[in-house]
Design a protein around this nucleic acid. Sequence first.
DNA 1: ACAAAAGTGTTCGCTATACACCCATGC
DNA 2: GCATGGGTGTATAGCGAACACTTTTGT
Lengths: 244, 244
Amino acid sequence: MTSPPVLHEVLAAVLGIRDGRLRVLLWQRALDPEAGRWALPGGRLAADEDVETSVRRQLAEKVDVRGVAHVEQLSVFSDPGRTPGPRTIATAFLGLVPSDADPELPPDTAWQAVDALPETAFDHAAIAGSARGRLRAKLSYTNLGFALAPSEFTISALREHYVAALGHPVSATNLQRVLTRRGLLAPTGEVAPSGRSGGRPAAVFRFTDRALRVTDAFAVLRPPGRSGPDPTVWPGTAPDAVLP
Amino acid sequence: MTSPPVLHEVLAAVLGIRDGRLRVLLWQRALDPEAGRWALPGGRLAADEDVETSVRRQLAEKVDVRGVAHVEQLSVFSDPGRTPGPRTIATAFLGLVPSDADPELPPDTAWQAVDALPETAFDHAAIAGSARGRLRAKLSYTNLGFALAPSEFTISALREHYVAALGHPVSATNLQRVLTRRGLLAPTGEVAPSGRSGGRPAAVFRFTDRALRVTDAFAVLRPPGRSGPDPTVWPGTAPDAVLP
DNA sequence: ACAAAAGTGTTCGCTATACACCCATGC
DNA sequence: GCATGGGTGTATAGCGAACACTTTTGT
């Protein structure tokens, strides 16, 4: 019964497209251990909050909460040696901030490219990588683009966001078709003026929903009889909890 | 700095097809709190183990470890009031036991239908539901059937497993075609004798792999140029960690 | 007129489902 | 022979990728 104390922290890998690249919000540690290295925001769980409440509270101290369009749990990092000192178990989260939200950041905090992280503390690089993997997967079968793109955008601007997040070329033609067929895009009716080098002005769109929706669940072994893909998620399963 | 102690436990929703239904392994609590109610196996984390090691160790006390074909993390349950007494955070897992593994169970332990759970303790019913959702999703885009079916089976027997797990009709014809096209099934060359009512004897198959493989990742927005669906998972992403 | 960017039309391959039909066995 | 269950052949619908082509702007 004299088991050693175990502390519990939450950590958030907050991703966003900044400057054409997929970046994660990190702060630079001033004190040991790991002074100088970059770390994910987060911290200890308070007595009266669950992990999701906690991560949202702690993010609010770094970025304007309203800037965070989506938060979801990744997984637990619990290796006994993951941090020095008393054992600390971390629940890792993915957060997404659209590129038109530009929260003021504390001086020790910056957006760092996920593909070229600076020296990171503890296992935080693995958590950031896990967040990137989750984002890439969900971009393909959900409407999660809404949490990355600004509220209004042209297709080519949206395409650049997808390219940065996915890390491979994306065709604007097909992107528009896929998202349109799934009913995720709504034209605002406005057009964006063309640049100095000419070109047809682009139509402006927005996402129809600003909350996570699974749009392409269950490619196979669907229940019989239905013609179209059913728009709703399987009964009794939260979108977050379904496809790991 | 006088934050209250937080305990950490792991809980496993071990699912399997038993008697034609999707069931979960539960044990009946003898003592308060929640005496008489049914609970998931699990318990406190030891000092030198991570959560995955811990859940495998604790399962070994209930079922023969070799019977458990697959274990993966679900999510953290951390509501402050989820248990009485000192605060306890749970990391929940999905475990799968093929139907030809019949571990001896302690007298207080039984397979209970997930669709008709008895009175369960704490938030364990929600965890079992989450496990069922995860299983249903992954049956569609991975080879996870291997962890549910016996090592050798006929297509119609496999079909019954899928029906029980998914909760809706599944066509044997299409099931065979989908799994064959994906290269998941290998015929053993043997045939199962037909029953007393006649009928053509069925060919016997086995799964080619006995470890999780994502077979249908990323229906859309694939990297360009490839003809077939790429057989491997996205570089740098573990199958477990990808699609929630 | 020309270049540039946006957007549409069309083709192609592939997947998954549905359903008709053939095969092998017990009685 | 006939019922029963197993298995294959084939048609259909839809999706996503690729690419040619048209539309609309700036210079």
